[in-house]
Protein backbone atom coordinates (compact mmCIF):
# COMPACT_ATOMS: atom_id res chain seq x y z
CA UNK A 1 0.00 0.00 0.00
CA UNK A 2 1.52 3.28 -0.97
CA UNK A 3 1.69 5.88 1.74
CA UNK A 4 3.64 8.78 0.26
CA UNK A 5 3.38 9.94 -3.31
CA UNK A 6 5.05 12.81 -5.09
CA UNK A 7 3.36 13.84 -8.34
CA UNK A 8 5.20 16.03 -10.84
CA UNK A 9 6.77 17.88 -7.97
CA UNK A 10 8.47 21.12 -8.89
CA UNK A 11 10.35 23.80 -7.01
CA UNK A 12 11.58 27.15 -8.24
CA UNK A 13 13.58 29.38 -5.93
CA UNK A 14 13.59 33.10 -6.39
CA UNK A 15 16.97 34.70 -5.92
CA UNK A 16 16.31 38.31 -4.80
CA UNK A 17 19.94 39.36 -5.41
CA UNK A 18 20.22 38.08 -8.94
CA UNK A 19 16.54 38.87 -9.49
CA UNK A 20 16.25 35.54 -11.28
CA UNK A 21 14.65 32.17 -10.71
CA UNK A 22 16.45 28.90 -10.07
CA UNK A 23 14.61 25.66 -10.70
CA UNK A 24 15.97 23.17 -8.20
CA UNK A 25 13.38 20.46 -8.80
CA UNK A 26 12.01 20.13 -12.32
CA UNK A 27 9.64 17.19 -12.29
CA UNK A 28 9.79 14.46 -9.69
CA UNK A 29 7.24 11.69 -9.30
CA UNK A 30 7.75 8.98 -6.74
CA UNK A 31 5.58 6.51 -4.84
CA UNK A 32 6.72 5.10 -1.53
CA UNK A 33 5.16 1.95 -0.07
CA UNK A 34 4.19 1.61 3.54
CA UNK A 35 7.19 0.21 5.44
CA UNK A 36 9.60 0.77 2.57
CA UNK A 37 13.13 2.09 3.00
CA UNK A 38 14.00 4.35 0.07
CA UNK A 39 17.47 5.86 -0.34
CA UNK A 40 17.86 8.93 -2.52
CA UNK A 41 21.26 9.67 -4.04
CA UNK A 42 22.52 12.13 -6.61
CA UNK A 43 25.26 14.66 -7.20
CA UNK A 44 25.51 17.78 -5.08
CA UNK A 45 22.91 20.38 -6.01
CA UNK A 46 20.55 17.95 -7.74
CA UNK A 47 17.71 18.90 -5.38
CA UNK A 48 17.76 16.18 -2.70
CA UNK A 49 17.48 18.53 0.27
CA UNK A 50 14.90 20.62 -1.52
CA UNK A 51 12.67 17.60 -2.07
CA UNK A 52 13.03 16.45 1.52
CA UNK A 53 12.26 19.93 2.86
CA UNK A 54 9.12 20.07 0.74
CA UNK A 55 7.95 16.70 2.03
CA UNK A 56 8.70 17.83 5.58
CA UNK A 57 6.70 20.99 4.88
CA UNK A 58 9.57 23.34 5.69
CA UNK A 59 9.36 25.03 2.30
CA UNK A 60 6.39 25.38 -0.06
CA UNK A 61 6.43 23.69 -3.45
CA UNK A 62 5.91 25.53 -6.72
CA UNK A 63 4.12 22.81 -8.69
CA UNK A 64 2.76 19.29 -8.53
CA UNK A 65 1.68 17.70 -5.28
CA UNK A 66 2.75 15.71 -2.28
CA UNK A 67 0.19 13.28 -0.88
CA UNK A 68 0.55 11.47 2.40
CA UNK A 69 -2.06 8.74 2.73
CA UNK A 70 -4.05 10.64 0.11
CA UNK A 71 -3.94 14.01 1.85
CA UNK A 72 -1.95 16.94 0.47
CA UNK A 73 0.99 18.00 2.62
CA UNK A 74 0.84 21.56 3.86
CA UNK A 75 3.46 22.71 6.39
CA UNK A 76 5.36 20.62 8.92
CA UNK A 77 3.53 18.05 11.01
CA UNK A 78 4.04 15.11 13.35
CA UNK A 79 3.08 12.61 10.63
CA UNK A 80 6.48 13.29 9.03
CA UNK A 81 9.37 12.75 11.42
CA UNK A 82 12.66 14.38 10.49
CA UNK A 83 16.23 13.43 11.40
CA UNK A 84 18.63 16.29 10.78
CA UNK A 85 22.27 16.27 9.76
CA UNK A 86 22.82 18.84 12.52
CA UNK A 87 21.07 16.46 15.00
CA UNK A 88 18.90 19.40 16.15
CA UNK A 89 18.53 18.11 19.69
CA UNK A 90 17.20 20.60 22.23
CA UNK A 91 20.33 21.47 24.25
CA UNK A 92 18.31 22.54 27.31
CA UNK A 93 16.46 19.25 27.55
CA UNK A 94 17.81 15.95 28.80
CA UNK A 95 18.00 13.03 26.40
CA UNK A 96 14.81 11.61 27.93
CA UNK A 97 12.96 14.91 27.53
CA UNK A 98 14.17 15.22 23.96
CA UNK A 99 12.78 11.82 23.08
CA UNK A 100 9.51 12.35 24.93
CA UNK A 101 8.99 15.78 23.33
CA UNK A 102 6.70 14.52 20.55
CA UNK A 103 4.40 12.60 22.91
CA UNK A 104 4.44 15.61 25.25
CA UNK A 105 3.17 17.86 22.48
CA UNK A 106 0.45 15.29 21.77
CA UNK A 107 -0.62 15.57 25.40
CA UNK A 108 0.51 12.14 26.56
CA UNK A 109 0.76 12.18 30.40
CA UNK A 110 4.25 12.37 31.89
CA UNK A 111 4.53 8.80 33.19
CA UNK A 112 3.35 7.34 29.91
CA UNK A 113 5.56 9.47 27.67
CA UNK A 114 8.61 8.74 29.82
CA UNK A 115 7.86 5.04 29.46
CA UNK A 116 7.66 5.42 25.67
CA UNK A 117 10.89 7.42 25.59
CA UNK A 118 12.74 4.85 27.74
CA UNK A 119 11.55 2.05 25.50
CA UNK A 120 12.97 3.82 22.43
CA UNK A 121 16.20 4.72 24.20
CA UNK A 122 16.61 1.07 25.03
CA UNK A 123 16.09 0.24 21.36
CA UNK A 124 19.07 2.48 20.54
CA UNK A 125 21.16 1.23 23.44
CA UNK A 126 20.99 4.59 25.18
CA UNK A 127 19.22 3.77 28.43
CA UNK A 128 22.23 4.84 30.47
CA UNK A 129 22.23 8.33 28.90
CA UNK A 130 18.60 9.22 29.63
CA UNK A 131 19.38 11.94 32.16
CA UNK A 132 22.30 13.51 30.34
CA UNK A 133 22.25 16.65 28.23
CA UNK A 134 22.98 16.43 24.49
CA UNK A 135 26.28 18.32 24.71
CA UNK A 136 27.55 15.62 27.05
CA UNK A 137 27.18 12.97 24.33
CA UNK A 138 29.36 12.01 21.37
CA UNK A 139 28.13 12.84 17.88
CA UNK A 140 27.14 9.23 17.26
CA UNK A 141 25.10 9.09 20.44
CA UNK A 142 23.46 12.43 19.65
CA UNK A 143 22.28 11.15 16.30
CA UNK A 144 20.96 7.96 17.89
CA UNK A 145 18.87 10.24 20.07
CA UNK A 146 17.82 12.18 16.96
CA UNK A 147 16.61 8.99 15.30
CA UNK A 148 14.65 7.64 18.25
CA UNK A 149 13.20 11.07 19.03
CA UNK A 150 11.63 11.04 15.57
CA UNK A 151 10.57 7.37 15.87
CA UNK A 152 9.04 7.79 19.33
CA UNK A 153 6.47 10.10 17.79
CA UNK A 154 5.30 7.30 15.50
CA UNK A 155 5.40 9.22 12.19
CA UNK A 156 3.91 7.84 8.99
CA UNK A 157 7.21 8.63 7.24
CA UNK A 158 10.70 9.17 8.58
CA UNK A 159 12.71 11.72 6.60
CA UNK A 160 16.49 11.71 6.92
CA UNK A 161 18.84 14.16 5.17
CA UNK A 162 22.41 12.90 5.33
CA UNK A 163 21.97 12.09 9.01
CA UNK A 164 25.31 10.31 9.40
CA UNK A 165 27.42 12.70 7.32
CA UNK A 166 29.00 14.42 10.30
CA UNK A 167 30.15 11.40 12.32
CA UNK A 168 33.40 9.47 11.82
CA UNK A 169 33.55 6.46 9.49
CA UNK A 170 33.56 3.79 12.20
CA UNK A 171 30.62 5.29 14.06
CA UNK A 172 28.79 5.74 10.79
CA UNK A 173 28.99 2.01 10.04
CA UNK A 174 27.67 1.18 13.49
CA UNK A 175 24.84 3.66 13.09
CA UNK A 176 23.95 2.19 9.70
CA UNK A 177 23.79 -1.32 11.16
CA UNK A 178 21.68 -0.10 14.05
CA UNK A 179 19.33 1.72 11.71
CA UNK A 180 18.72 -1.42 9.62
CA UNK A 181 18.13 -3.39 12.82
CA UNK A 182 15.65 -0.81 14.15
CA UNK A 183 13.97 -0.61 10.76
CA UNK A 184 13.51 -4.37 10.72
CA UNK A 185 11.95 -4.31 14.18
CA UNK A 186 9.62 -1.34 13.63
CA UNK A 187 9.23 -1.19 9.86
CA UNK A 188 8.86 2.58 9.57
CA UNK A 189 8.57 4.12 6.10
CA UNK A 190 11.88 5.89 5.49
CA UNK A 191 13.25 8.33 2.95
CA UNK A 192 16.97 8.50 3.41
CA UNK A 193 19.08 11.06 1.58
CA UNK A 194 22.80 10.55 1.21
CA UNK A 195 25.89 11.23 -0.85
CA UNK A 196 27.32 7.89 0.08
CA UNK A 197 26.41 5.20 -2.46
CA UNK A 198 27.39 2.13 -0.37
CA UNK A 199 25.38 3.61 2.50
CA UNK A 200 22.35 4.03 0.24
CA UNK A 201 22.54 0.43 -0.98
CA UNK A 202 23.31 -1.01 2.44
CA UNK A 203 20.19 0.52 4.01
CA UNK A 204 17.54 0.52 1.32
CA UNK A 205 14.91 -1.61 -0.35
CA UNK A 206 15.15 0.76 -3.25
CA UNK A 207 17.64 3.38 -4.37
CA UNK A 208 16.43 6.42 -6.31
CA UNK A 209 19.00 8.32 -8.34
CA UNK A 210 18.34 12.00 -8.96
CA UNK A 211 19.90 14.23 -11.55
CA UNK A 212 19.32 17.93 -12.08
CA UNK A 213 15.96 17.94 -10.39
CA UNK A 214 14.65 14.78 -12.07
CA UNK A 215 14.53 11.08 -11.24
CA UNK A 216 17.23 9.52 -13.39
CA UNK A 217 16.69 5.89 -12.42
CA UNK A 218 15.70 3.55 -9.63
CA UNK A 219 17.10 0.24 -8.53
CA UNK A 220 15.66 -2.45 -6.24
CA UNK A 221 17.89 -3.82 -3.51
CA UNK A 222 16.91 -7.37 -2.58
CA UNK A 223 19.77 -8.12 -0.25
CA UNK A 224 18.80 -10.35 2.68
CA UNK A 225 18.43 -8.91 6.17
CA UNK A 226 19.71 -8.47 8.78
CA UNK A 227 22.48 -6.63 7.00
CA UNK A 228 25.88 -6.25 8.62
CA UNK A 229 28.99 -4.78 7.04
CA UNK A 230 31.17 -7.81 7.78
CA UNK A 231 28.99 -9.90 5.46
CA UNK A 232 28.02 -7.34 2.85
CA UNK A 233 31.46 -5.92 2.25
CA UNK A 234 32.42 -9.20 0.52
CA UNK A 235 28.99 -9.84 -0.99
CA UNK A 236 28.98 -9.99 -4.80
CA UNK A 237 25.41 -8.71 -5.18
CA UNK A 238 26.13 -5.77 -2.87
CA UNK A 239 29.26 -4.88 -4.82
CA UNK A 240 27.46 -5.16 -8.14
CA UNK A 241 24.53 -3.00 -7.00
CA UNK A 242 26.83 -0.41 -5.51
CA UNK A 243 28.90 -0.03 -8.64
CA UNK A 244 25.73 0.12 -10.72
CA UNK A 245 24.38 2.99 -8.62
CA UNK A 246 27.75 4.69 -8.59
CA UNK A 247 27.84 4.63 -12.38
CA UNK A 248 24.38 6.20 -12.56
CA UNK A 249 25.37 8.94 -10.13
CA UNK A 250 28.54 9.65 -12.05
CA UNK A 251 26.70 9.83 -15.35
CA UNK A 252 24.06 12.07 -13.79
Amino acid sequence: MKTLSLKNLQKTYFDPYAGSQVTAVHDVSLDVEQGEFVSVVGPSGCGKTTILNMIAGFIPYSGGEILLDGIAVNGPGPDRGVVFQSFALFPWKTVLDNVSFGPKIRGVPKAERDRIAREYLELAGLSHAADRYPNELSGGMQQRVGVVRALANNPAVLLMDEPFASVDAQTRMTLQEELTRIWQQRKPTVIFITHDVPEAVFLANRVVVLSKGRVLDQIKVDLPRPRVWDDLMQDETFKRLSSQVLQMVRSA
Binding site: P76, P78, G81, A88, G102
Partner: peptide, 14 residues
Protein backbone atom coordinates in the same frame (compact mmCIF):
# COMPACT_ATOMS: atom_id res chain seq x y z
CA UNK B 1 18.76 29.64 17.68
CA UNK B 2 19.51 27.14 14.92
CA UNK B 3 16.69 26.97 12.37
CA UNK B 4 16.71 23.18 12.56
CA UNK B 5 15.66 23.32 16.22
CA UNK B 6 12.41 25.11 15.38
CA UNK B 7 11.89 22.76 12.45
CA UNK B 8 12.51 19.73 14.63
CA UNK B 9 9.91 20.94 17.13
CA UNK B 10 7.38 21.62 14.37
CA UNK B 11 7.95 18.16 12.91
CA UNK B 12 7.24 16.73 16.33
CA UNK B 13 3.89 18.50 16.27
CA UNK B 14 4.59 21.80 18.01
Amino acid sequence: VHRDLARAAQSLGA
